[in-house]
Design a protein around this nucleic acid. Structure first.
Ligand SMILES: [Mn+2]
Ligand SMILES: [Mn+2]
Ligand SMILES: [Zn+2]
Ligand SMILES: [Zn+2]
Lengths: 138, 138
DNA sequence: TCTGTATTTAGAATAGTTCTAAACGTGGAC
DNA sequence: GTCCACGTTTAGAACTATTCTAAATACAGA
């Protein structure tokens, strides 16, 4: 099999229920960075029972908490989910909103070009960390 | 005066009403990257009339559309507003959520250190542009 | 002054997400 | 094998952020 989803969930401490398996399987099989509703729509008919949105959100939140997937935010107010946990950045096509993975080594020293496949209009570095010294600048 | 808000709005094609002036003034005076509700709370008692949330959203959207301010997204599902239109990135304190401006030249060639004031835990490059060639990777 | 148009307002509507309480399912304890 | 406790799922209510709607208001220009 391409993915041993059951094993993946177990090793991350998530009990592999049918709902969680089918959600994780969908995320592992796509590169589309789907929203919660995208996941719900894609998965709801793959189960013999009706699927609740609450289960989709519970599962996505659990998978994020356990490090199986990550959240990706490319536009204000839309949360997307990503099973690609390798070190990578995101290229957003400003015409379609499509989110494409860019391996970290592709950006070894940030340049304004990414090669000829992508035309960079702008980029934004979001840094997460801690303030060490107390030099307030407000 | 520190800011000629009226002139700023006029030069960007936004008619300077009292509501718009007080909202723009607040944004220009802070480095706190406030949310729409932060703006509403900060500004609502500075006007002789009651202020509607719709006006706050209308104004923020108009100022973004005209390039007077920009939206900043540092955490999933929270839109913040920023009157600093210089070329800069954002440092997010992961303990408090505080958003701090980092001038672009500080990151002349992305390193994992920012100097001793900030300890970088992780960073994410979001790139906006257009796909040129048709080499689909899905 | 009159009037057309832009702006503002309060509240309804919508969208995304979380919460609640009841029903369900299942892996041990016996 | 039966039972039960507990984790999971479900439907729908609740909540939050934002947008929409329709009516009132402001006001620049004729
Ligand atoms: Mn698969
Ligand atoms: Mn000022
Ligand atoms: Zn990705
Ligand atoms: Zn900023």
């Amino acid at each position: 099999m391409k993915h041993d989803v059951e094993e993946l969930l177990k090793t991350h401490g998530v009990k592999p229920t049918p709902q969680r398996m089918v959600i994780a399987e969908f995320l592992l099989d796509t590169h589309s960075h789907p929203t919660a509703d995208d996941v719900f729509q894609a998965v709801k008919d793959k189960l013999p029972v009706s699927l609740s949105r609450a289960t989709v959100y519970n599962t996505l939140n659990a998978l994020v908490a356990k490090g199986v997937i990550q959240e990706v935010t490319t536009e204000a107010g839309r949360v997307r989910y990503d099973a690609n946990m390798s070190d990578h950045h995101h290229f957003v096509d400003i015409e379609t909103g499509t989110v494409i993975d860019i391996p970290a080594e592709t950006l070894n020293q940030i340049k304004l070009e990414l090669g000829d496949q992508y035309k960079v209009r702008s980029f934004h570095v979001t840094i997460f960390g801690e303030v060490v010294s107390g030099k307030s600048k407000e």
